[in-house]
């Protein structure tokens, strides 16, 4: 347990992290940051879901993927990194789109995907399996994070309605996406360690241009399917 000494957590909390299973949907920009933060914290089991392969254009921000892994599935490349960093972590990989049954096998899911169509799908998988989900999105100089405890706190549909139109993503620099990923990871930690989170029924919006951090309350929408 020396490995986690500087986490400065109680033995009980560290054991709770050790027994936790977290599904990471997307092993790209957000996923890379979430994977490295959760591996550092000592989450016992990480599920990695992504059907993409590592490309040269990923390497401006996705630090867990090595140059030599270009062309490999991101899930495999991420597994290699985790095993080299912390061999005690159990890793499961899914080189395919996220499915509802995957959620059933984990305690919490993290949305690290790059489009709203899938973000809404993950929201619905979380509702159907009753698993907490940490949502985030990032683009340019902006990002947002929210945590969802299904049927208890507001979900993505409460906030955005049934709108799931495709949005265009042109890219992001690494300090921005890694900051959002770090906050997502912190929410995962809070949900596991304290069974609550800071961003329930509210969304944190960060504008990196002027460092504005703003949380907006979104209460549960009575019209929502959740």
């Amino acid at each position: 347990m020396n490995r986690y000494l500087k986490n400065n957590l109680s033995k009980e909390i560290q054991e709770i992290l050790q027994s936790a299973k977290v599904l990471i949907c997307g092993c790209g920009g957000l996923g890379s940051g979430v994977i490295s933060n959760l591996a550092g914290l000592g989450i016992g089991t990480l599920g990695l879901c992504d059907f993409d392969k590592v490309e040269i254009t990923n390497l401006n921000r996705q630090f867990i993927h090595k140059y030599e892994n270009i062309g490999k599935f991101k899930t495999e490349s991420a597994r290699e990194w985790i095993k080299s960093y912390n061999p005690d972590i159990e890793v499961k990989t899914y080189a395919e789109p996220a499915k509802e049954w995957m959620f059933s096998e984990y305690d919490i899911a993290v949305d690290c995907t790059d489009n709203f169509k899938i973000k809404f799908q993950l929201n619905d998988f979380a509702l159907n399996t009753d698993k907490p989900l940490v949502h985030a999105g990032v683009q340019g100089e902006q990002g947002q994070v929210m945590s969802i405890i299904p049927h208890q706190t507001s979900c993505l549909r409460c906030v955005l309605g049934d709108n799931s139109e495709e949005t265009e993503n042109s890219g992001v620099i690494s300090p921005v996406v890694n900051t959002i990923a770090a906050i997502e990871s912190l929410e995962v930690f809070k949900l596991i360690a304290n069974k609550e989170a800071a961003l329930l029924n509210k969304v944190l919006f960060i504008n990196f241009k002027n460092y504005s951090f703003k949380t907006i309350d979104f209460s549960k929408n009575p019209h929502c399917i959740c």
């Binding site: 995907t113 489009n115 947002q144």
Partner: peptide, 28 residues
């Protein structure tokens, strides 16, 4: 106060109201 989409058609804007358009981004 966030206005639910269902209430857009009935929620009237009045003199002095302050509106924030809160954009969500979808990248990852």
């Amino acid at each position: 106060k966030i206005i639910n989409k269902e209430d857009y058609s009935t929620e009237l804007l009045q003199e002095g109201d302050s509106i924030e358009i809160v954009g969500f981004v979808g990248g990852g």
